[in-house]
């Protein structure tokens, strides 16, 4: 595990495209589909998840050598549950409207497979710094993905972005976009788009 700069940059960067959680790995579907009816909800969910992801990766990476492999999943789940509850309490105390909008989906971060996936797949095998970079990259990728979903759904569903009305009175909002069905439409299109782009990238002869 060479700990040079290039490697760290790579650990960070892979979360932004190569292993972009919702659209490339199709992981973390529950929040991606459920809470992205506006940018602010998407970003809040993304940040809450990133916080849990980062804390869990740090903790798991630190204790990776003392946890017996038979009980590692149980230990990780306890650790993850701790951070999720902290995030939930924090949102309820400081940002009650966001906490209300996200509802049960904050506690559900516990079962978000991205987090256990990173703990099990990366942090338990790697030292602290790469684990942090990994969590930051994946977390940022996840947050941006949710913000993108939220942006598309908000502009069509409400005619606004971040509650700022962009489309005038003439625009009759597409209610379907803020309903669950709209989440599936947007998600489908974005997965198709990422597949198309990655195929084109692979086909290009000088692609890296």
């Amino acid at each position: 595990m060479a700990n040079n700069n290039y490697n760290l940059w790579h650990e960070f960067k892979k979360g932004l495209w190569q292993e972009l959680p919702p659209f490339r790995l199709i992981l973390g579907m529950c929040p991606t589909l459920a809470v992205t009816n506006s940018v602010i909800n998407g970003v809040a969910m993304g940040l809450a998840t990133s916080f849990v992801l980062l804390s869990a990766n740090i903790s798991v990476s630190l204790i990776r050598k003392i946890v017996p492999s038979q009980v590692r999943i149980a230990t990780y789940v306890v650790v993850i549950a701790l951070y999720v509850t902290v995030a939930d309490l924090f949102l309820a105390a400081m940002f009650p409207p966001i906490s209300k909008a996200l509802g049960p989906y904050v506690p559900l971060i516990v079962v978000n497979c991205i987090i256990l996936g990173r703990a099990e797949g990366f942090a338990q095998k790697n030292p602290l710094t790469p684990s942090i970079m990994d969590a930051l990259g994946i977390g940022l990728g996840f947050t941006l993905s949710l913000a993108l979903m939220g942006g598309i759904r908000e502009i069509f569903g409400f005619g606004s972005i971040l509650d700022i009305k962009l489309l005038g009175e003439w625009f009759e909002p597409w209610i379907v976009m803020i309903l669950p069905a709209g989440a599936f439409f947007v998600f489908g299109f974005l997965v198709a788009l990422t597949n198309y782009l990655s195929k084109r990238k692979a086909a290009a002869p000088s692609g890296h």
Partner: peptide
């Protein structure tokens, strides 16, 4: 059905 979900009032 899409229109029904998109423009429920119309």
């Amino acid at each position: 059905a899409f229109l029904m979900a998109t423009y429920p009032v119309l």
